[in-house]
């Protein structure tokens, strides 16, 4: 989710980009000092299909608050992330619940994203070793990342595809045995909040190709003034 919520404009460049530049393009695509955004999340599974509207606030990589506005049934449900911890606020019962560590791999809000996806803010270039970038048939850069031995990464490898103008195209997550687990694809590059960013991200599990979670950024305001007090358990209960 780190990559979802924050955007940093990709600098234009001339010569072949370095690996760091390519990886940072992916890491920083939605990242800023702070941001406020309006997001739509569309979840399609074999059993249900639903669309949620939410608003998000974030500060750096450490703090994020997401509040669901629609549908009415889930309105006011909020997720607060501070560091490695996640709390959910449930307006119906007016309680907050901390997600225990054992549940971090569970689904977030019924989507294909996990709670872990929300927490993992570490930069790709810090957790992985990589191959030299190669160009594929679509003239995009492809880098295969392998987790460093001590990194707490569940994937066997991560293949990052970045366009020539440093726009992330997709990230493919592989299991330990090399089979594709899921694909996060970036699309709909638009100007948003003063940057040119892909405004749609679609996560597709490889074993259920008919299912997906699609996140669309409706509004995004980088470097907005977000007060520190937003990110507290008390603020969840507003």
């Amino acid at each position: 989710m780190s990559t979802i919520l924050l955007v940093l404009a990709a600098t234009a460049l001339a010569a072949d980009p370095t690996v760091e530049e390519l990886l940072n393009a992916t890491d920083d695509v939605m990242r800023g000092e702070s941001s406020v955004g309006v997001i739509e999340m569309h979840v399609k599974t074999a059993r249900y299909e639903r669309t949620m509207a939410m608003k998000s606030w974030s500060q750096g990589t450490e703090k994020t608050l997401i509040i669901i506005e629609e549908p009415a049934k889930d309105k006011g449900v909020a997720t607060l992330k501070v560091g490695d911890n996640i709390w959910n606020y449930l307006p119906k019962v007016d309680r907050t619940m901390k997600v225990p560590s054992g549940m971090m791999s569970g689904s977030w809000m019924g989507s294909h994203f996990s709670n872990d996806d929300l927490v993992k803010e570490n930069r790709l270039s810090e957790e992985f070793t990589w191959t030299d970038p190669t160009k594929n048939a679509d003239n995009n850069w492809v880098i295969t990342l392998t987790p460093q031995p001590d990194a707490a990464i569940v994937w066997g490898a991560v293949v990052v595809t970045v366009s020539d103008n440093l726009m992330p195209v997709k990230i493919e997550y592989q299991e330990e045995d090399g089979t594709l687990a899921r694909t996060l694809a970036y699309s709909e590059v638009k100007d948003l909040g003063g940057r040119t960013v892909p405004t749609v991200m679609t996560l597709t599990p490889a074993d259920k190709p008919e299912e997906f979670t699609k996140i669309t950024y409706r509004e995004l305001d980088f470097d907005a003034d977000v007060p520190e007090s937003m990110f507290s358990l008390q603020s969840l209960k507003r």
Binding site: Y48, R50, K73, N88, L90, R95, S107, G110
Partner: peptide
Amino acid sequence: VVALTQASDGSLGNEL
């Protein structure tokens, strides 16, 4: 105690 589950329609079932 609060119980929080993912309901069959994808919503967040929660109850006290």
